[in-house]
Design a binder for these strands. Sequence first.
DNA 1: GCATAGTACCTTGCATCACAAAGTACCTGT
DNA 2: ACAGGTACTTTGTGATGCAAGGTACTATGC
Lengths: 120, 120
Amino acid sequence: MNIENAQVQMRKGILEFCILHIISRGEVYASDMLDELTSARIMVVEGTLYPLLTRLKNSGWLDYKWVESSSGPPRKYYVLTDEGKVFLDAMQATWFELADSVQTVIRRSEEFSKNGSPNP
Amino acid sequence: MNIENAQVQMRKGILEFCILHIISRGEVYASDMLDELTSARIMVVEGTLYPLLTRLKNSGWLDYKWVESSSGPPRKYYVLTDEGKVFLDAMQATWFELADSVQTVIRRSEEFSKNGSPNP
DNA sequence: GCATAGTACCTTGCATCACAAAGTACCTGT
DNA sequence: ACAGGTACTTTGTGATGCAAGGTACTATGC
């Protein structure tokens, strides 16, 4: 295992959360999402995004409609369903808890290297 | 897919980072790690932890030694190798970047719901 | 018309990994 | 011996990120 692989692992699941967030703002299609994620320095490729969108759709959290484009093939514009909004809220709570837990672990290591074992 | 599954996905890869952090403080064995992770509200079970430790060992980031216990079977006490320390630093940088990227996505959604589209 | 390029969406196959469940081995107390 | 607790291991399953290749539609150039 190398650092690139580890980075990929660390991002798993969080992608889903970020994509739901982006769709929560309004109708978007896949290329919009890729642009937004890229600008937030979260690299995603089509082979990851499309199956993920299909899964979220099949779970009932997304819906989409075909929209004709003036320059190219039609696009799938996605929106969040009401169930999807509930799910997104739950994911956000999970994210904050996780970030806090990781911060706890990091803080303890910092205290340890400053003071020696903080445990009595 | 349900919220439990999504939470599991979100934690993937981050577990590895947290475990390396815990081992970085000094020699510990598996039950120590489980206690520490549980107290940080990161639930892990043996079936996850042991294979992960084996992977990290095989990657050269951990080493261990058998230590006799005064009450029970001998224990494997793990320590970070020099390579492991370098890897942990890289993982930590990745974590902070990822947390920042996610925060960026969340912030944009908040701005959107306050002001409408922030894009000109 | 026809070919080329660009855009958008989809599918296949592979490797990785968390987890549940069952198993192995060691030590202590009775 | 035997039961109970502790510690480490293994097997099988399901989920999923991703690379690579494919399909389909539109516009442009000739």
